[in-house]
Structures are given as C-alpha cells and as structure tokens.
C-alpha cells in the first residue's frame, strides 16, 4: 500500500505531498499524521503541497480535518507552497480553508510555527503570570 512519508524535523512534522492524491491515500495520510503527532508530541505540522496541481473539496476537507485534529492535540498546522491556480480555484469553489495557517514555502512556514511557539518549555508557565 502506498504511503506518504512523514518526516520529523526538530519540534515539527513535515509532509511533502509529491504524488496525485486519490481519496484513500489522503485518508491514510490523515490517520498516519494524527498518530505521529501523538507519538512524537510535535507542536507543529507542515504540509507542503507545492507539487499538487489540484485540491478539491475532498482534499480541502482532509486538510481541515488534520488542522482541526492537531489543534485539539495542541499542534498547529501550516499548509505551505500552494500554487496560485490552486488558490484561485479553491476560492471560487468556496473553500477558503479558514482555520488553517498558510505560508509561501517550507522555510517561511517553519518560521511561522517557530514564532507561535512559547519561547521555551521553562518560560511557558511565566506567560500566564504576565
């Protein structure tokens, strides 16, 4: 069975989707990714879709699911590298993917996640006092 590889990069998980997604593959990805978030305790998930030439409502839903599920497990999801044509199509389709963070590329996505993390584990408690 085909699988999309999930890489652990420091505190975050990185998924680069290189193949055309058919529905079952997307569902498997959802399942695997959530398991990985749980197992690794990652605080952020980067999904690189720069190689995807299509995101339809089903894949939009999967991306939303991943973001929603990670979020209640205290991890943020950033979708990076969406193609202009895909963005225009998604808007016309009526799927603005609200609730999902976006970034231009993996580097910027990583910086975005970094900036949303508490400074360090020890300081995390002090934040509430402020």
């Amino acid at each position: 069975m085909e699988k999309i590889p999930i890489l652990k990069m420091g505190k975050f998980l990185l998924v680069t989707i290189q193949v055309d997604l058919y529905d079952r593959l997307a569902l498997t990805l959802e399942e695997d990714l959530i398991q990985m978030v749980f197992k690794t305790g990652s605080k952020g998930v980067l999904i690189d879709i720069s190689a995807l030439s299509i995101v339809d409502s089903f894949m939009g839903k999967i991306i939303g699911n991943i973001a929603g599920m990670s979020s209640i497990m205290d991890a943020e999801t950033v979708v990076v590298g969406m193609q202009p044509a895909v963005a225009i199509t998604l808007i016309e389709l009526g799927l603005p993917l609200s609730g999902v963070h976006t970034a231009l590329n993996v580097e910027k996505g990583m910086a975005l996640l970094e900036s949303r993390m508490p400074p360090s584990l020890d300081d995390a408690n002090d934040d509430d006092v402020d």
Binding site: I54, D56, S57, F58, Q83, A85, V86, I88, L93
Partner: peptide
Amino acid sequence: GIVNQTKLITATSEIAR
C-alpha cells in the same frame, strides 16, 4: 491557461467523485 485548467480538473474531480 493554467488557472482555467485547474478549475476544470477540480470541477471534474468533484463531479466524478
């Protein structure tokens, strides 16, 4: 064009599914 191509294949995907 690439945008219209993407729109068309997305619509195709929706209806076919």
